[in-house]
Design a protein around this nucleic acid. Sequence first.
DNA 1: TATGAATGAGGATTCATTCAT
DNA 2: AATGAATGAATCCTCATTCAT
Lengths: 202, 202, 202, 202
Amino acid sequence: MPKKGMEAIRQQQLIEATLQVIHDQGLQATTLGRVGQRAGISPGLVSHYFGDKGHLLAATYLYLVRSLEQEYRKARHGTAAGLPRVRAIIDANFAASQSDEVTVSSWLSFYAQVNHVPALARIQRVVTRRLGSNLTHALSTLMPRDHALHVAEGLGVMIDGLWLRASLRTGGLDVDAARAMAHDYLDSQLQMLTGDRYDQSA
Amino acid sequence: MPKKGMEAIRQQQLIEATLQVIHDQGLQATTLGRVGQRAGISPGLVSHYFGDKGHLLAATYLYLVRSLEQEYRKARHGTAAGLPRVRAIIDANFAASQSDEVTVSSWLSFYAQVNHVPALARIQRVVTRRLGSNLTHALSTLMPRDHALHVAEGLGVMIDGLWLRASLRTGGLDVDAARAMAHDYLDSQLQMLTGDRYDQSA
Amino acid sequence: MPKKGMEAIRQQQLIEATLQVIHDQGLQATTLGRVGQRAGISPGLVSHYFGDKGHLLAATYLYLVRSLEQEYRKARHGTAAGLPRVRAIIDANFAASQSDEVTVSSWLSFYAQVNHVPALARIQRVVTRRLGSNLTHALSTLMPRDHALHVAEGLGVMIDGLWLRASLRTGGLDVDAARAMAHDYLDSQLQMLTGDRYDQSA
Amino acid sequence: MPKKGMEAIRQQQLIEATLQVIHDQGLQATTLGRVGQRAGISPGLVSHYFGDKGHLLAATYLYLVRSLEQEYRKARHGTAAGLPRVRAIIDANFAASQSDEVTVSSWLSFYAQVNHVPALARIQRVVTRRLGSNLTHALSTLMPRDHALHVAEGLGVMIDGLWLRASLRTGGLDVDAARAMAHDYLDSQLQMLTGDRYDQSA
DNA sequence: TATGAATGAGGATTCATTCAT
DNA sequence: AATGAATGAATCCTCATTCAT
C-alpha cells in the first residue's frame, strides 16, 4: 500500500532500476530484490513503495508509455501540419529517449506480457491507439481519410517491426537504419498514391 | 514390456502442451507442473523427458521454427521462380500453421526471452537469416541484388511487425489483413522501382 | 520382495555394481537408477531383486563383511598357531580382496551409516567382534589373556585407522606401508612385553 | 531497524543445528528443512544464510576442523617442548570439545564424503597435515627426524582408528580408554627406540 | 523374467511479502 | 522513513517404487 508521504524520487529511482534489471536479466528474472539492489535500497522498501510487484511493473510500463507520448507531443507541437508533422511523428518513435537499449528491450518484455496481465493490457491499448490517431490525423491533410487510415496502420506496423528487430541484440539493425526504413515506407506509400492519381488523371 | 516409442510421443505431447500453456498463461507462468497437467501426465515426467525446463523450452521454440521453415520449403518448391515465389514466401508466414493464436503468442513470448537465453538466441539467429535469404534469393530475379536486399529486409521487418500486432489480442489485426498488408508493401516497393527506372529513363 | 526364481547371478551383478557406484559417487549419490545402469539392467529390476534399497545396501555390506571373514578363515587355516597366525590375520586385512580401492572406500561409506541404519549396525557388530576374537585367540598362545585382549584391541584400532587413511584418496598411504605399520605395531607391543618381563625378572 | 549482527549468530546456530542433525540422522538424512527445524527457523532461511547446502556443510566441517586446530594450539602453547608437548598434542585429540558424541559422529560422516566433495577434500587435506606436522615437530626433539616422522604417522593412524571406533555407538570404546591407548602406543614406540639404542650400544 | 513408463513424494532453492525495530 | 530478518508458498528436479506389457 503506497504510503501517503511517499516520495516521487524513490518511485522514479525504482522505475529506472526496474528498467535496467529487465534489460539485463529479462522480465522473468526481474525480482524485487534485484530491483532494490540496483536502486541501492533494501528489498523491503520496494514493496513498500509500490505495494506490490504488479504495481511496480505497471508503473514502469506506464513510464515508458508516457515517455513515448511526450515525444509525440513534441512532434505535434513543433512542426507544421502536413508532411513535416508526419515525419516528425515517425522520428518521435526513434528519438533518443525511445531508442536506447534499455527502453527497447524492456518494451519487448512488456509486450510479451500484455496478453496475460490486464493492468498492462489497459496501458497498451492506449499507446497503440495514440500512435494510430496521431499518424492518421497528420496524414489526413495529405490524402483522403481512408487512405490515411491505411497508411497510418502500415506505418504503425512497420515501426513495431523495426522496434522488434532492433530489440534483438543479434538483429544488426541500428536506429538510423530503422528510421530510414520507416521514412522509406512512407515514401513508397506516398508515391503509390501519386502514381494512382497519375494513373487516374491519365 | 512397456510401450515402446513413448519418448517421441511424449515429447510431442509435451511441446504442444507447452505451447498451450504459454498461450494461456504466458511464459512467466509456464511451470513444468502446469505443462504436465495440460498434457495429462505427472509433473515429474516432464523433467524426465526433457532433462530440464530449459531444454523443454528450447525444444518448443525449435518446433515453432521448424514448422515455419517447413512452410518456407513448401513455398519455394511449389512455385515458379520470380514474383510468384516471393508472394508464396510472404504467404508462408501467414499459413494456417503459423497464424493460429497459440503459435503467434508463443512466438512473441520466446522473442522476449531471446536476449537472455543463449540457447534460444542460437535458434533465433537461424530463423531470422533464413527468412532474409529466402526473400533475397527470390527477389534477385526481379531486381538488382542491392535492391533485393533492401526490399527483403523491409519485408522481413513488415512481417515481424504484423506478427507482433497480431499477437496482441487487442490488436484487431486479423490474418488476412496482415497478409494483405505485406503484399501491399511489396507492391509499393515494386512500384517504386518502376518509378525509379522511369525517372532514370526519362 | 525377493522372488523365488531369483538368480544369484543378478544379485552378485548388482552388488558389484553397487560397490562401484559407491566408490565413484559416494553413498549419498548411489541411486537405484545408477546401480542398474552400471549393471546394465533396467532400473525397475533392481528393486525387483532386492525389494528395497535398504536391502540392496545391507546385502552389499554383508558381501564386504563375508569377504573379509573369508580372508580370516584362510589366515586361520593356512598357518601354524602362534605368531605366524597372528601375522596372517593382520595380513588378511590387507589382502588383495580387501585393499582394492572400491572395497576400501565402500567400507568407509557404510561405516558412516552404521549408526543410523539398524540393519547395517547388526552386520557391523559381528565383524568388529570377529576380528577381535580372531586376534585374541591367536595372541593367547603368546601371552596372558589380559595382555592378548589389550594387544588385540590395539591392533584392531590400528587396522581401522590404516583403512581409514587408505580410503582417503589424498592420504598417501599405500597398502604395503599400511601393512608394515600394523606389523610394526605388533612388534612394538611384543617388545614391550619382553621388556616388561625383563624388568620383572631383573 | 532489525536486529543487527544476526548473520553471525544465525550461522553459528545453523552450524550447531547441522551437527546435531548429522549426529541424529546421518549426513544422508540431513536436509535443510531438518536443520532449520532444529534451529527453530524456517527452511528458506537456511539457504539464505549459507547460499546453498554445500556451503553449509563445508562451513560445518570447517567449524569442526577449526575447533580441533584450536586444541592443537592450546597444546603447543601451554607445554614445555619435548615429551610433555607430544602428550599434550595427543590429548588435544581427545579434549572435551573433540570427544562428545556429536562431534565424533559428524566427523565420520564428513570423512565418508571427503572423496566425493572437493570442497571437503580441501579442508580435510589441511587437517591431516596439521596433525602430522604438529606431532613430527614435537617428536623431533626426542629422536632423529626420520624416526619422528615414522612415529608421528603411526600416532596419527592410531588416533584416527580410535576416533573411528569411538564413533561407533556399539564400539564400546570410551574416551579415556582411547586416550590411554594412544599414549600406550607412544610408550611402546619410545621403548622400541630405547631398546634399539640399547642393542646398538651393547 | 525383464522393461521402462509412470507416479508422487521429498528436497533444495528462490522470492514476494510482512514486520519488528 | 528505512532496514533487513523472517516466513512460507511455489518451483524445479530427483528418486524409489510400482505396474502394465
